[in-house]
Design a binder for these strands. Structure first.
Length: 546
DNA sequence: GTATTCTGG
DNA sequence: TTCTACCAGAATACG
């Protein structure tokens, strides 16, 4: 993946020449009355931002447009050109060669050739926009495109540009701790097993547990390769049979944290800034959610004691700042209540009660820790398009009992039942479902004769409207917040988005001004009759702020 | 390149 | 009869 940082800052061999070119275009690029069209325009915006130029004016991204207007097509410009314009563009490889050792840089190529390539690139983008613009209208995606996606492009570019500061010393300390824990766990496991093997190989581990130690004669095997399953769930059920099992779980926790986070995050720190500049992908998921990579900041541990320590390494830019986190409380259940119009569920939220406790009271008639835990599982099941099989698996109860539980739930929340039925029948009739903002997800398999396939599509339909609406909501909030922050010329910066959470580098003096703004704009981004609650926190690192 | 596992929402 | 809970990224093993 190309990176504006390395591609355009580090390797530029003629910065003066580049600056002169930049100055030629500065007037147009910074003119807010002139719209800009680009394919993956966040990339171009970012490059210019790193060169101190802030692009103004309305942005039209043909890649985003294609995502919404022709969702089945691949999103590379070359492919779209062939599919929509019946024209095969000059291949970049015809200028710089195939990917590999001797691939050239564009600046080593004859300028005439580069000019032809670049001009064609611009021309195709313009032509694609002419084709895609009416298609967005036809597909009913104009509102999502105009009010959700396009305004978000510069917001994401700025978040990537800002990055987040990492305290590498925190990471180094964790690395040492984990190293010794892993080493002693390994020794104990091999001692108990009587032999050494590769602990990271599920295959070898499965053979040790089930062939050598014979811990479970009815051990489950994986569907694809027929290996023994050694997942957390499986180990959990085996834990009482042999001391080695707990040790393996301990080892796995530490090995995962070390390899995926502790050892890899320092490598993502960009030397030029000392910060981690993640990339956000706006147009990839089926539901409308974003993805983060390089590194992925959306799966930093929080659920376990050990794992959450990693969040202490995410720190404010300097001592004048703190990290501020704002996250939606139970957003998907609130959205479910809103879309379904279920009166009882809406009432629970209006009264400000605990949704899982209230659900436990409704379906079990009692309120204790265990029933609340089960009700919570049921509530998640609702969002995902519940099935007796799936619920039984997660609650570890018989399928028949799970089915009764679902009946019980739907009796108490008839609006939710109607939502699932209406959503499925709409999907069967139209072949797609929509979020509140009109974002569509097409479901090819919704009328499949294969029951498993069809049921899967039905769950996608139920889940997509909910997850997609929540995604729309936070995307809108981000644009509104960024606008308000720059209008007020705040020094605080939006840094991260984690699906239902926004994290800010907040100047200490701006707390009283910024926090009410963030809270209000997040809560009202999409007007709803169910109250939307935003929980906020401040701290010297991400863990403290959350 | 595919499969498995684990991290998050 | 089916062996599925939804949406993702990344590390590792293994053919």
């Amino acid at each position: 993946m190309l990176n504006p940082l390395s591609t355009f800052l580090g390797e530029l061999h003629d910065p003066d020449g580049a600056d002169r070119v930049l100055e030629e275009f500065r007037g147009i690029l910074e003119d807010s009355t002139i719209g800009k069209i680009g394919h993956n325009i966040k990339f171009d915006y970012s490059v210019l931002l790193w060169h101190g130029l802030r692009v103004q004016g309305k942005l039209f991204d043909t890649m985003l447009a294609a995502w919404l207007a022709v969702p089945d097509l691949r999103r590379s410009m070359d492919y779209l050109s062939e599919a929509l314009l019946a024209y095969t563009p000059i291949k970049i490889t015809s200028l710089i060669g195939e990917k590999g050792e001797q691939q050239k840089s564009l600046r080593e190529v004859d300028v005439e050739k580069v000019a032809e390539y670049a001009a064609e690139d611009a021309d195709i983008t313009l032509q694609l926009s002419d084709v895609l613009r009416p298609k967005i209208e036809e597909m009913g995606q104009a509102e999502v495109f105009e009010t959700v996606e396009c305004p978000l492009v510069p917001v994401l570019a700025h978040m990537e540009y800002e990055g987040v500061r990492m305290d590498v010393d925190v990471i180094k300390g964790l690395s040492e701790d984990l190293k010794s824990e892993i080493s002693s766990a390994r020794n104990e496991i091999f001692e108990l097993a009587g032999t050494e093997f590769n602990l990271n190989s599920p295959k070898q581990l499965g053979e040790m547990l089930f062939d050598t130690l014979k811990l479970d004669p009815d051990a489950r095997r994986t569907a694809k390769s027929g290996q023994y399953q050694t997942s957390e769930r499986v180990l959990q059920r085996l834990a009482h049979k042999h001391a080695i099992v707990q040790k393996i779980m301990d080892y796995r926790v530490c090995a995962k944290l070390k390899s995926t986070y502790v050892d890899s995050l320092p490598g993502s720190v960009f030397e030029g800034t000392g910060r981690v500049h993640t990339h956000y992908e706006q147009a990839v998921t089926a539901t409308g959610r974003m993805q983060s990579h390089g590194p992925n900041l959306q799966n930093i541990p929080i659920r376990t004691e050990k794992g959450r320590e990693i969040r202490k390494a995410f720190v404010p830019r300097n001592s004048d700042f703190v990290l501020m986190s704002a996250d939606y409380s139970q957003i998907e259940l609130r959205v479910a209540a809103e879309i379904s119009g279920d009166v009882g569920m809406g009432q629970i939220f209006s009264e400000g009660g605990d949704i899982h406790t209230a659900t436990a009271v409704k379906i079990y008639g009692v309120d204790n820790e265990e029933m609340r835990r089960r009700a919570k599982t049921v509530n998640f099941g609702i969002i995902y398009g519940i099935s007796p099989f799936g619920l039984a698996e997660r609650l570890d109860i018989p399928r028949t009992q799970a089915a009764e539980l679902i009946d019980q739930y739907f009796e108490q929340f008839p609006g939710v039942k109607k939502y699932t039925e209406d959503t499925i029948s709409f999907a069967k009739e139209h072949g797609y479902v929509e979020t509140i903002m009109g974002r569509r997800r097409y479901l090819r398999d919704i009328n499949s004769r294969n029951t498993t396939t069809r049921k899967g599509a039905e769950r996608n339909a139920i889940n997509s409207r909910i997850q997609g609406t929540a995604a729309d909501m936070i995307k809108i909030a981000m644009s509104l917040i960024q606008d308000e922050m720059s209008r007020r010329r705040l020094n605080s910066r939006m840094l991260m988005q984690v699906h239902d959470e926004l994290v800010f580098d907040m100047h200490r003096d701006e707390a009283d001004e910024l926090m009410p703004i963030v809270e209000r704009l997040m809560a009202t981004a999409i007007p709803m009759s169910v109250p939307i609650v935003v929980e906020m926190g401040v701290g010297e690192h991400w863990l403290e702020a959350h």
